[in-house]
């Protein structure tokens, strides 16, 4: 067995297992610990609040920062965050090789985007990440909130994007097998890392957003 086979075979399976078990643990911990019910008389619909918060939070805010004027001084943080997340989502789910990887795990596939588009989204995602990192270095608030964990998270997410990019463009004249193995290694490491880090917010986000929408919807305030 060579490195590539190892990283896309047993190592990938172990990583996937750690990822799934870790995320299930995180999810169950929140659900089983439970939360207090809000007993105050409702002024509006919690369900409507949840719908609104997703429309705003997923579709609107990341790309149109002026909607909530909390971002007037650094709209770039918002826009870069939107670029990074959208780019990453498209690359992970809508590129042909990744869909094939999903098919091998899930057993079914879906239509994908042409490669040049994927290439653009990957670039957008990486540029977004670089802007976000610069913000962490340049702005005093960013510096204060950035610790070792944030650096590691950034690196662990950036490396699969970068290695995928190098792989696709055949950069640096590296043998295809080698760079593919590196890409798979970074992906495995990302999967293992996620449940232990704040990157797990991809799941917790849906819990806190729902809570947020329900709370403010119930209060009769636009979430």
């Amino acid at each position: 067995m060579d490195w590539l086979e190892f990283f896309r075979g047993p190592m990938f399976q172990i990583a996937l297992l750690v990822f799934i078990l870790g995320m299930v643990y995180r999810f169950l911990r929140i659900v089983l610990m439970g939360w207090k019910k809000d007993y105050s008389p409702p002024r509006g619909s919690a369900a409507a609040g949840v719908v609104k918060t997703y429309v705003k939070g997923l579709g609107f805010l990341p790309f149109l920062p002026p909607k909530f004027p909390g971002t007037r001084h650094r709209p770039l943080t918002y826009i870069a965050g939107g670029m990074f997340h959208l780019g990453l989502f498209v690359v992970i789910f809508l590129s042909t090789p990744h869909m094939e990887a999903w098919r091998s795990v899930l057993g079914f596939g879906w239509p994908t985007l042409p490669t040049p588009f994927i290439d653009g989204f990957a670039a957008m995602s990486m540029i977004g990440m670089i802007i976000l990192l610069s913000n962490r270095i340049v702005s005093p608030v960013g510096r204060m909130l950035t610790g070792l964990g944030e650096w590691l998270n950034w690196i662990v997410v950036f490396l699969p994007l970068l290695s995928g990019w190098v792989l696709y463009h055949h950069l640096f004249g590296m043998p295809y097998q080698t760079i593919f193995a590196i890409h798979m290694f970074t992906v495995d490491w990302l999967l293992i890392w996620i449940p232990f880090s704040r990157i797990s917010h991809f799941m917790t986000y849906f819990i806190t957003r729902t809570m947020h929408g329900a709370k403010f919807g119930r209060l009769g305030v636009e979430p």
Binding site: W35, K36, T77, R198
Partner: peptide
């Protein structure tokens, strides 16, 4: 409780709240 754990878990330390 689960509410508190979720609130603290989800923070990406982005600093937008400062603004």
């Amino acid at each position: 409780d689960g509410w508190l754990v979720a609130q603290l878990d989800v923070c990406a330390r982005c600093g937008i709240c400062a603004e």
